[in-house]
Design a protein around this nucleic acid. Structure first.
Length: 362
DNA sequence: TAATCGTGGTA
DNA sequence: TTACCAAGATT
């Protein structure tokens, strides 16, 4: 039991990690732990799928409230499938990567209408569904069905790159890492628990900046730790620095029957913030828009006042968004459009950048 | 293969 | 402030 592990012995690595998971693994809202299973609790594939979609590139604390809210509002895949898409998008607002929400809704409709509400167990059948790629298909197989799978997320990439001290930088090393990860995953029983365990190890012990190697169940097998170079792995290519884009948006309010209202519009279907609500405004360009372009983008001719500037960071550029505000005179209905009660702005489903702009206008 | 696609937390 | 990071998928 105290014998040193070897990274060329996948069976013992697998067993050691499972033993660690039984003691130290996290309890997460969507997770069925071994002791839960012993009490007869079974995973709900719909709830598992929902969690995996929300957790793509997203932290547990950020995703968790959304997961609870979605399950409460739409308890089954049929409920979600029959919900209006604008309701789903609004409920997703603030989580980011909005293509996930569009794909999630499309996936729910396929599962509800074509698959009788049952998620597939087959890897290729899962991967064929919208929003489900290689990682998520394996994660659903493992967490929902306890079927053989190899999950490789950012956590696992880090753990495996350190264990084998892989010199190839990401993302080129993905194939090599996947192969190594699959070898260990396939070398034991309890595939569902193993998948959770290897991700937990990366999330709580083998962390990016300050790994807790002293308590790691794989310490005695880890090549990077032997070299005292844990945080040098995984190797990564340098990232490009983000360009800046500039834009102007318009915060127009009027007096409605139930109080003040704000003018919004829906963004185009695809692309950045696709299908989400926004304040009307100019395009976001590398050069600040000129006066003519700004005037042409205003929803109405008015005495626009400068309300301030929103700075927001997207995945591949930074945005500096000037907010201009105006209030229509009493009795002036203003332009056609989606007027939203200011008192219910949170339910309007604004993405974070637009919520910042909306607040700045008051 | 490389770009695109959010957000909030942390060092 | 800047840079990095978090249960990736799609085109």
């Amino acid at each position: 039991m105290t014998n040193a592990l070897s990274r060329s012995d996948p069976g013992r690595l697998n067993a050691a990690l499972l033993a660690w998971y039984d003691r130290q693994g996290r309890a997460l809202p969507w997770r069925v732990r071994p002791e839960d299973r012993a009490r007869g609790v079974k995973a709900d594939p719909y709830a598992v799928w929902l969690s995996e979609i929300m957790l793509q590139q997203t932290t547990v604390p950020h995703a968790a409230p959304y997961w609870h809210a979605f399950l409460q509002r739409w308890p089954t895949v049929h409920d979600l499938a029959s919900a209006p898409r604008e309701d789903v998008m609004a409920a997703w607002a603030g989580l980011g990567y909005y293509a996930r929400a569009r794909n999630m809704h499309a996936c729910a409709r396929v599962v509800s209408e074509e698959l009788g509400g049952e998620f597939p167990r087959d890897l290729d059948a899962l991967r064929a569904l919208p929003g489900i790629g290689d990682y998520t298909a394996n994660a659903i197989r493992a967490a929902a069905f306890d079927l053989p799978a190899s999950v490789v997320d950012g956590n696992v990439e880090r753990v495996v790159a350190r264990l084998f001290r892989i010199e190839t930088p990401l993302p080129r090393a993905k194939a090599e890492i996947k192969a190594a990860a699959a070898g260990i995953a396939a070398s034991g029983a309890r595939p569902g628990d193993y998948a959770q365990a290897v991700m937990d190890l990366g999330a709580t012990v083998c962390t990016p900046r300050s790994p807790a190697c002293g308590i790691c169940p794989w310490r005695s097998a880890c090549a990077a730790c032997d070299a005292g170079a844990q945080t040098d792995y995984p190797r990564k290519e340098r990232k490009k620095q983000k360009p800046v884009r500039y834009g102007v948006c318009f915060h127009l309010t009027r007096d409605g029957p139930g109080g003040a209202e704000l003018l919004l519009r829906r963004r185009p279907e695809a692309g950045l913030l696709g299908a989400m609500m926004e304040l009307p405004g100019t395009d976001w360009t590398e050069e600040a828009p000129v006066a003519e372009a700004i005037a042409a983008s205003a929803p109405v001719g008015a005495d626009w006042q400068e309300a301030g500037r929103v700075r927001h960071v997207f995945t591949h550029f930074r945005l500096e968004l000037d907010v201009r505000t105006a209030r229509l005179a009493a009795g002036d209905a203003g332009p056609q459009g989606r007027w939203v009660s200011v008192g219910a702005l949170k339910q309007a489903g604004l993405p974070s950048v637009m919520m910042k702009a909306a607040k700045l206008g008051f």
